[in-house]
Amino acid sequence: MSTTETTASGIGPVEGAALYDVDNPAPVIEAPRQRTKKTPKPTRGNFEMYGWLFMRLSGIVLVVLVIGHLLIQLVLDGGVSKIGFAFVAGRWASPWWQVWDLAMLWLAMLHGANGLRTVINDYAERANTRLWLKGLLYTATVFTILLGTLVIFTFDPNIR
């Protein structure tokens, strides 16, 4: 402040008069979403706790599911070159792999969506931004889960 403003002391080079003084102070920069006496409103229920637990538990299960999936798809038995329509059709003929893929789809989507919800809660400051980002997130999540589930259950290898 002193290096620049002791000489200028708020006097702009153009205006020639002080922009701010004792009776007319500059606005302070408020911290985002400050706590007040009225906010946040107390919430009931354990949603956040179940969300937190779900992240941990689904994470553990996903490690097994995803690493297994990657091994089968990319490493074992010829690697990525073996993947084709026939390979996928062959795997989905077995209920075991149907359940595997279904669990992976649901857990990964919910885990990711909840993670992004947390990120939005942490980083989006304006109420409107939060609303729109979350709306977009939930729409994408529901769409992907429903579409994936539909494909797994109605997959028919006898195409045409």
Partner: peptide, 15 residues
């Protein structure tokens, strides 16, 4: 880090 709303809206470093 200095800020004085009665002088300027900007905060500045002073050594």
């Amino acid at each position: 880090r200095r800020f004085n709303p009665e002088v300027s809206a900007e905060s500045t470093w002073e050594d």
